[in-house]
Design a protein around this nucleic acid. Structure first.
Lengths: 142, 142
DNA sequence: CTTTGTGCAAACACTTTGCAAGTCC
DNA sequence: GGACTTGCAAAGTGTTTGCACAAAG
């Protein structure tokens, strides 16, 4: 896991990837956001910067970063794939179907659940970035 | 929840839907399978029957059935949406990323996890059909 | 200089939609 | 008969790929 202050160049090299402008820009965008982003959100955010990158490049970069474990990928629904920078222990979210808000989910609960599943089923759940949907108790939008 | 022996016609009418051949055929296919199916799997299964149905019809039927709560829908990844007949309490699965097998997941564990999330976060997770991915301990394909 | 990444455009797969003809009740 | 459903074909959307050029190490 990269240091919070580490430069995007170092982060990339540390993971064995070349430090290219597109990758650095994507990393910067993801690190600024403490939530997950869809591909189009990443593209929009990049459009605000100096250079422009093709969407196919963004897809490839996100895929590369995911491949070396720098970002986590979640598929909520078709065409709604989200990516998140992996920097802290808590990568799990709950998303309210009423208001659309995404809230952090206690990592311990998830870990406990995962180990119970392993105990019971001998199955190691790969949950680096779990997103569950439901409804908030006091949802302002409901 | 429909009776196991109830005819597809009765099931449909009981949910306020018209009993059409396409809907009955889809229901029969889903009820025969005790696992979830992708849209293309449903289409292939239907192709073995007497009548043929357009893929757009299958999409519409699955959407209708989902709308009245007869089937559960899960999105694993883009283009990999799965549907399952809702007949029993256990709708949760774990899918092995190595061999692709889908195994049932103990419903109690999931319920326990959901109630803990509710306790801690005041959030009601909507998990009628949860699919987690990971790796089996003794995966034959690994 | 060799290997890898990027832009561009085209291809892809999955899903949705408009409309006329057909079906259900 | 009136409202809903289906097939067909076409359009959408998100994602991937082939290839020539550009950049990284």
């Amino acid at each position: 896991m990269p240091e919070p202050s580490e430069s995007s160049t170092d982060v990339l090299r540390g993971s064995g990837l070349r430090a290219t402008p597109a990758r650095k820009a994507v990393i910067d965008v993801l690190r600024e956001t403490h939530n997950h982003m869809t591909v189009s959100e990443v593209i929009s955010a990049l459009a605000g910067g100096d250079s422009k990158f093709d969407q196919s490049t963004v897809y490839r970069v996100l895929s590369d970063l995911g491949g070396v474990g720098l970002v986590a990928e979640s598929r909520l629904s078709p065409g709604d794939t989200v990516f998140e920078w992996i920097s802290q222990s808590n990568h799990h979210h709950i998303q309210c179907t009423e208001c659309g808000r995404t809230l952090p989910l206690d990592d311990e609960l998830v870990q406990e659940f995962i180990s119970k599943v392993h105990e019971r089923h001998g199955f190691h759940v790969n949950a680096t970035h779990l997103v569950l949907s439901g409804i908030e108790h006091d949802c302002p939008g409901a």
